[in-house]
Design a protein around this nucleic acid. Structure first.
Lengths: 356, 356
DNA sequence: ATAAATATTTGGAACGTTCCAATTATGTCA
DNA sequence: TGACATAATTGGAACGTTCCAAATATTTAT
C-alpha cells in the first residue's frame, strides 16, 4: 500500500519535463508537442496519477469545481428520485458530479446541507425547497455568484430561477374532464393551503369549474396533509357533507390513493361510485387498482431541464433568473370511471424496469 | 454582488488577530481564549465567511474530505432510492456529504463516475456495482487507502467489505411457505444466471424444496431478464410446460409483477389460480393488486448499515474487509393465495408518505 | 547564414488553509 | 522580584495545482 500521493511533480520528474508542461497536458492545451504529450500521458498511466481537483480549484479561485448540488425534500418519493435521475443524466454528461442530499422536509437539515455544499465549493445548486423555506435563504449563494435553480415548488420573492409544472393548467384539464363525464359536484381534496403549489392548483380548479360552467362551493375545498393519510381524512369530510360530491380532484397522487382507501372503507368503489383524479403521475399510479387517472408531470424531464438551465447559467457566468413552467398532461386511466382498459396486458409500462 | 472571497486572512485582519488564531477557532481548539473566539466568530458572521474545505483538504493531505461517494445502478428503482436515503441519513449526521451517481448498469459510466469521485477526493465509497463489474476495478481505490463497501450485489474476489441480504434464507422461507400451502410444483422464475445474487437465490430455492421434501426439477427453473418484461416471458414458458407449476418464487419483485401480468393475460388470477412470491419488497409491492407476498430486505437498513461500516473504516484509517449478510423476512400478502386482508383500510402503510 | 517569427518549455508566485516551532502574555511560587 | 510554568498567539512553510512572464528550441524567410 503506497502511502505517498503521485503529483504532477512526480510525473514531471519521471517524464523529464517541467511541472508546467504536465499541467498543460492535463488541460489538453495545444501548446504542447505531440511527442511530449504522449510521453507524459504514458507516465501518468504508469504511475497511477490521479488529478487533484481540490488543488486545481484552489488556484483557479473561480467556481470551477464541477460539482453541482442537488437537494430534495423526499428521495423516498419516487417523484423526486426520478427528478434526481434526470438531473444526474445531464450533469454527468456535462462532466459534472452531483452532490445529492435529502432534507426530509426539515428546514434545518436543508440549511445544513446547503452550507456544507457551499463549503465544498459547488458551482451551482438545484433545490426542491422544504416546506416553508425562507425565500431569503438562498440569497447568499446567488450573491456569491452561485446559480440556484428552484424546482417543483416555487419560492415567491426569491430572485432565483425556477422551474415548476403547470399546476393550473393541469387542474383545469382534470376538472374539465370530470365535468365532461357529467359530474356536477367536484371536490378539491388535500394539500396544505400555505404553499404556492396549493394556490396554483386551487386556482386551476376554480378556472376549470368556471370553464365548465359549474359553480364554486367553498365547502368542496377540503385541505389536509398532502399524504395518503391526509387523503383518507379529506374524503371522510367530503362524504359527511350534506350534498356530497361525486368526484374529486386531489392535490397529488398520494392524497388520491388515500381517497381511494377512504372510499373503500365506506364500501364505495373508486372509479365506479366516485371519480378520483390525482396529480403527479407517480410511478405507482399506473400499477394501482384502479389505475389512477392523474396529471402527468414528468419529473425526470423537470430534472433534466433544471440541470440544463443551471449549467447554462454556470457557463454564462451570470445568473439571469428565469422562470419556466413545464407542460403537463392528463392521463386518463380507471379511477375517474372513464377508463375502459382491457383487464390484461393492456397496461403498458412507461419504461423498462431493471431489476437488480 | 461581491466578487472577492472572504478568507481567514480577512477575518484575522478584521478581528485583529493572526490567521493562525482564526484557524484555531475554526477547528474548535481549546487553546484559544474565550473572548478571542467570540470576537472571531462574530467577525466571521459579519463578513459572511465560508470555509474553504478544498484548501483545508489540500493542506491536510489526508483523506479528510468528508465526502463519501455513493454509486447505484438504478436510482429509478425505489429499492435503490431507499438505499440512498439510508446512506444519506447516517452520512449526513456524521457530518459528511454524499456524492450520488447513477450508472444505469453501464460499466463505463461506473468507471467514469468513480474516477471523477476519486479526483474530488472522496474519503470512502459505497457502491452497488453494475452488472459484470470487474472485481479488480476497485483495487486502486483500496490501494490508495480509500475504503470501499459493496452493497446489494457482492463482488467475489474483490478484497472489499460487502453487505448483502440473506438471499438464500429468504428463498428458503418463501419456498417453505408455498409448500406449506400445499403446492407441490413450485417454479423459480427470472434473473440472469451469471450473477452471484442469482446463484444465492437459486441455492435457497433448492434448499427450500429439500426442506419441504419436494424434488428439484430442472425445467422449473426459468431464467429471464430481472425485469417486469422478463417475468411475463418466464411465466409464459412455465405455463407451456407439460406439467405446469402451481406456484412460483420470483427472482425479484419486478419479475413477480411481470408474472402477474402474464397470468392475467391468460385469464389466471394471481393469488387465486397461481401463487406468486417476489423478492425485495419494493415500495409498490404492498399497494399492488393483489398485494405481493415477498421477501422484505429493507434497503434503507442496508444503506444505513453500509454507511456505518464505511465510516468505521474511514475513522479506523484501515480497511479491514468484512462481509455481512443482513436478515430478511417473508411478508405474506395476497399474491400467494394465503392473505386474507380485509378489502378496505386493512392495508396499513409502512411509512407515512409525504406528498409535495 | 542570420534575423524574425513561431513553437515549445519553464521557473516562480499564487490560491486558502493547517501545521510547526517559536514567541509573547499571564499566572504562580518562592 | 526573579524564575518558572502555563496560556495564548503568531509568522512562515507546506499542500498540488494553474497562471504568468520569460526563456529556449525550431522554422521560415531573406
Amino acid at each position: 500500500m503506497t502511502k505517498a500521493r503521485v503529483t504532477v511533480i512526480d510525473i514531471a520528474k519521471a517524464a523529464g519535463v517541467s511541472k508546467s508542461t504536465v499541467s498543460l497536458v492535463l488541460q489538453g492545451s495545444s501548446l504542447v508537442n505531440e511527442a511530449t504529450r504522449a510521453k507524459v500521458n504514458a507516465v501518468m498511466r504508469d504511475l497511477g496519477y490521479v488529478y487533484n481537483r481540490g488543488a486545481a480549484n484552489l488556484r483557479q479561485a473561480g467556481a470551477k469545481s464541477r460539482i453541482i448540488g442537488v437537494v430534495v425534500n423526499d428521495l423516498t418519493n419516487s417523484f423526486f428520485a426520478e427528478l434526481a435521475v434526470g438531473v444526474d443524466m445531464v450533469v454527468q454528461s456535462a462532466g459534472f458530479v452531483q452532490f445529492l442530499s435529502n432534507t426530509g422536509e426539515s428546514i434545518d437539515r436543508q440549511r445544513e446541507v446547503v452550507a456544507s455544499m457551499r463549503e465544498h465549493g459547488i458551482s451551482g445548486l438545484i433545490v426542491s425547497p422544504a416546506r416553508a423555506t425562507d425565500a431569503a435563504d438562498f440569497k447568499p449563494l446567488v450573491a456569491a455568484g452561485i446559480p440556484v435553480v428552484v424546482v417543483v415548488r416555487n419560492l415567491p420573492g426569491a430572485k432565483v430561477s425556477s422551474i415548476v409544472s403547470d399546476n393550473r393548467a393541469g387542474m383545469v384539464s382534470a376538472v374539465k374532464h370530470l365535468a365532461g363525464l357529467g359530474h356536477k359536484r367536484i371536490a378539491f381534496l388535500g394539500g396544505f393551503p400555505d404553499t404556492a403549489v396549493f394556490d396554483d392548483r386551487l386556482a386551476g380548479y376554480r378556472n376549470g369549474l368556471e370553464a365548465a360552467g359549474l359553480d364554486y362551493h367553498e365547502e368542496l375545498v377540503i385541505s389536509s396533509a398532502p399524504s395518503r393519510a391526509g387523503g383518507v381524512e379529506a374524503i371522510g369530510k367530503a362524504i359527511a357533507l350534506g350534498r356530497r360530491p361525486t368526484a374529486a380532484v386531489c392535490f397529488n397522487d398520494a392524497v388520491a390513493f388515500g381517497v381511494c382507501d377512504g372510499l373503500r372503507a365506506r364500501r364505495l368503489e373508486p372509479g365506479a361510485d366516485f371519480a378520483v383524479v390525482g396529480f403527479d403521475d407517480v410511478i405507482e399510479a399506473q400499477a394501482a387498482v384502479p389505475a389512477l387517472t392523474t396529471v402527468s408531470v414528468d419529473p425526470q424531464g423537470i430534472g433534466r431541464r433544471g440541470a440544463q438551465m443551471l449549467l447554462k447559467q454556470i457557463n454564462a457566468g451570470k445568473a439571469e433568473a428565469e422562470t419556466v413552467t413545464t407542460a403537463v398532461r392528463l392521463v386518463v386511466r380507471e379511477s375517474c370511471g372513464a377508463g375502459k382498459t382491457a383487464p390484461a396486458m393492456g397496461r403498458q409500462e412507461r419504461k423498462i424496469e431493471t431489476g437488480r
